[in-house]
């Protein structure tokens, strides 16, 4: 395989992995639910995005033809991830989850 393509695929894999890890790290460590909600948006955008880009490049190179199937996963995640985050935020507000004391503003009553 051409060195440049191999380099790009490797770089995309690493970028994806690192961002998935940082997102999950945020989920594990941040102090309240609303803050944790920010972690997965990273994992679903750049995390999966990076690995999908790697796979796209890899198979396009392998078969010498543009392979765009994997883009469907990213497209689907980009449409659905905000919706599930929104639903979970609503659920959290409904249950009146504790938030960090210094949070400015307040959630709405559900």
């Amino acid at each position: 395989m051409d060195t440049l393509v191999e380099f790009l695929v490797s770089a995309a894999i690493l970028v994806g992995g690192v961002f998935a890890l940082v997102g999950s790290f945020g989920l594990a460590r941040l102090p309240d639910f609303y803050l944790r909600l920010h972690g997965p948006t990273k994992a679903s955008t750049l995390g999966v995005g990076g690995t999908i880009f790697a796979s796209l490049l890899f198979f396009s190179w392998q078969e010498q033809a543009l392979q765009l199937q994997e883009l469907l996963i990213v497209l689907f995640l980009f449409i659905t991830a905000p919706v599930s985050a929104h639903m979970l935020a609503k659920a959290a507000m409904h249950r009146q989850l504790r938030r960090r004391e210094d949070t400015r503003g307040r959630p709405w009553k559900q």
Partner: peptide
Amino acid sequence: TLPDRALALDTMYINAIALIVLYGIAND
């Protein structure tokens, strides 16, 4: 809390997708 667990599962499936895509590359 329950929403925390749901959020953890949500993130887990997203990471699982990344894992499977990587596995696809590894197995060609």
